[in-house]
Amino acid sequence: MIINKQYIFKNGVIALAMTLFFSCKNNFQEIKNIGVSENEPQGVGIDINAKRTDSGRVVANLMTPKMLDFENRKFGYSECPQGVVLDIFDENNQKTRVIADYAIIYSATDLVDLQGNVIVASSEKDSLFAEQLYFDQNKQWLFTNLPVTYKSKDYLTKGSGFDSDRDFKKAEVLEISGLFAVQED
């Protein structure tokens, strides 16, 4: 009888240990997210001045009063709800400045979505005015399918979209609705 009770007790402990062992799972990600709502940013930055470099040379400088970090989402992004100033530098350190009321930066695609009173001014004094503009950081390309006004040295062009490199050397206004010669005073 004593052997039988020890046998039952021993098997019971083994069964309990096995149950506990197999019920455990890796909850580290869940533990990291405790207290972080899925709708809330994982971080908030104030007075951001971020520089992007390539081979030790600054190629872009992003400035914003507030940045919200949503990199904890499946398709991570950062949001600049209070506007943004983005300076883009070419190989000769010539600056193109982009200003917008709002921006979203998608880290997986390196795409910047600029919205609201978007103004782009190149080092050659060309300017673009739009309500929304995308900047592909990898290709260094600006584009939109919304109405734009593009001012070059000689012309003011209105159209239904825009496609260009960051320096406006390959600038193209899509579906032109107005072309006006600029007169110097």
Score class of each variant (00 low, 15 high):
residue 90 D to G: 01
residue 100 A to W: 06
residue 101 D to C: 01
residue 136 D to L: 09
residue 92 N to A: 13
residue 106 Y to I: 00
residue 51 K to D: 04
residue 164 S to L: 05
residue 76 G to H: 03
residue 142 L to W: 06
residue 62 L to Q: 03
residue 83 G to I: 08
residue 166 R to A: 13
residue 92 N to R: 09
residue 125 K to L: 11
residue 66 K to C: 00
residue 112 V to Q: 05
residue 42 Q to W: 10
residue 100 A to P: 05
residue 114 L to R: 05
residue 136 D to V: 09
residue 88 I to R: 09
residue 124 E to R: 09
residue 139 K to E: 15
residue 94 Q to L: 15
residue 153 K to M: 02
residue 52 R to I: 06
residue 154 D to R: 05
residue 55 S to L: 13
residue 171 A to N: 04
residue 105 I to Y: 05
residue 45 G to R: 06
residue 46 I to K: 11
residue 116 G to L: 12
residue 93 N to R: 09
residue 74 K to P: 00
residue 48 I to C: 08
residue 73 R to I: 01
residue 55 S to T: 14
residue 92 N to Q: 12
residue 157 T to P: 02
residue 77 Y to V: 02
residue 143 F to D: 12
residue 57 R to G: 03
residue 45 G to T: 06
residue 142 L to S: 03
residue 152 S to Y: 01
residue 94 Q to A: 14
residue 89 F to V: 02
residue 127 S to V: 05
residue 54 D to A: 08
residue 53 T to W: 01
residue 114 L to D: 05
residue 138 N to I: 15
residue 104 I to P: 01
residue 78 S to L: 08
residue 56 G to Y: 03
residue 115 Q to A: 13
residue 116 G to M: 10
residue 80 C to G: 04
residue 36 V to Y: 12
residue 65 P to C: 06
residue 79 E to M: 14
residue 113 D to L: 06
residue 92 N to F: 08
residue 92 N to P: 00
residue 132 Q to T: 09
residue 115 Q to T: 12
residue 84 V to M: 14
residue 46 I to L: 15
residue 73 R to T: 10
residue 149 T to C: 07
residue 54 D to E: 15
residue 111 L to T: 07
residue 107 S to Y: 07
residue 51 K to A: 10
residue 124 E to H: 02
residue 165 D to W: 11
residue 135 F to I: 06
residue 55 S to Y: 10
residue 150 Y to F: 15
residue 84 V to A: 10
residue 37 S to L: 10
residue 127 S to Y: 03
residue 60 A to H: 04
residue 104 I to S: 05
residue 147 P to G: 08
residue 141 W to K: 05
residue 36 V to L: 15
residue 65 P to K: 10
residue 38 E to K: 13
residue 169 K to N: 14
residue 88 I to M: 00
residue 86 L to Q: 06
residue 50 A to M: 01
residue 170 K to I: 03
residue 138 N to L: 15
residue 155 Y to W: 11
residue 125 K to P: 02
residue 41 P to R: 03
residue 162 F to L: 00
residue 130 A to V: 07
residue 67 M to L: 08
residue 83 G to H: 07
residue 121 A to P: 00
residue 79 E to N: 08
residue 56 G to M: 05
residue 140 Q to N: 14
residue 159 G to P: 05
residue 58 V to A: 11
residue 72 N to R: 12
residue 102 Y to K: 11
residue 168 F to W: 06
residue 48 I to Y: 04
residue 90 D to E: 04
residue 126 D to V: 05
residue 106 Y to N: 03
residue 36 V to N: 14
residue 150 Y to A: 04
residue 116 G to T: 10
residue 163 D to T: 04
residue 145 N to E: 11
residue 62 L to Y: 08
residue 30 E to N: 10
residue 57 R to Y: 08
residue 107 S to G: 08
residue 104 I to G: 00
residue 94 Q to S: 14
residue 39 N to D: 15
residue 144 T to Y: 07
residue 153 K to P: 00
